[in-house]
């Protein structure tokens, strides 16, 4: 699990990388909404091809995406299989296995494809935006909202991103240690959860305590110099293009 580098930032100098973080964030929200509201396979096909273009424009590796998401593809296969057999409808004529229905195949494909598109969007966003830029963009959008301490939320937002890989590392280390002690042979789920979560939480909280000390010794404060943003014509064009695509999908 810890080897997943899909959601890591890869520094490059492409249009997508240099785009204004705020506009990119809007694009991401629009695309995930479009994926969520897509009602048929054509919508998802349009969305996937557009995202694929963006992915290629950002110079990210398709091979890596395929390799790292292989478990998701297996999961997608299971979802499609389960839906094909359970959803009632008309059988596919001339297909050797009788009980598979069109409706089931359609709904299974829609569900699993949508999940993969959503992960794809997340991968593009995190792959092309540095955490600092991402955080600043989030902070900028939260600033006009009342009752929300935007600096604190933005810091917590970036801390979460920092902590996820640390926890994943911790989990894979612990799982190896436990496998070598034959704990995965235990059937009792309470014991297994406790054996995993107890050391995980102890280590994670100690790690968090170290981060607190590190932040404190560097004089962390919520009063900071406001980040400067600048957006170019290119950025606005990408945004307009995203709105156009999402509009097509919503209208359809």
């Amino acid at each position: 699990m810890a080897e997943i580098t899909l959601f890591h930032y890869i520094p490059k100098k492409t249009i997508i990388h240099q785009m204004d973080g705020r506009l990119k964030l809007v694009c991401m929200i629009l695309f995930t909404m479009a994926a969520g509201f897509a009602r048929n396979l054509y919508d998802l096909a349009i969305l996937t091809s557009v995202l694929f273009m963006i992915y290629m424009a950002a110079g990210l590796s398709v091979k890596r995406f395929m390799i790292e998401l292989k478990y998701f593809f297996i999961l997608a296969g299971i979802i499609i299989g389960a839906h094909s057999f359970t959803v009632p409808g008309t059988a596919i004529p001339g297909f050797p296995i009788q009980r598979i229905t069109w409706e089931g195949l359609n709904s299974g494909l829609l569900l699993s494809w949508r999940l993969i598109v959503m992960i794809f969007i997340g991968a593009i966003m995190t792959g092309t935006t540095s955490l600092l830029q991402f955080k600043n963009a989030v902070e900028w959008f939260l600033r006009p909202l009342p009752f929300i301490p935007e600096a604190r939320v933005a810091t917590m937002f970036s801390l979460t991103f920092v902590l996820i890989p640390l926890i994943l590392d911790q989990i894979s280390e612990m799982m190896d240690a436990q496998k070598s002690r034959c704990i995965d042979g235990r059937k009792d789920p309470v014991t297994r959860i406790l054996f995993l979560v107890r050391p995980l939480l102890f280590h994670a909280f100690m790690r968090a305590e170290e981060i607190v000390q590190a932040m404190e010794s560097r004089c962390y404060s919520e009063i900071r110099t406001k980040p400067k943003f600048k957006s170019t014509l290119n950025d606005w064009l990408v945004l307009a293009f995203s709105i156009f695509i999402c509009f097509i999908i919503w209208v359809d």
């Binding site: 995930t32 997340g122 989030v138």
Partner: peptide
């Protein structure tokens, strides 16, 4: 915001 954190990798307002 669109990070795939919900069950199965889902995200978004939808």
């Amino acid at each position: 915001l669109g990070m795939p954190v919900f069950a199965g990798g889902a995200s978004g307002v939808a």
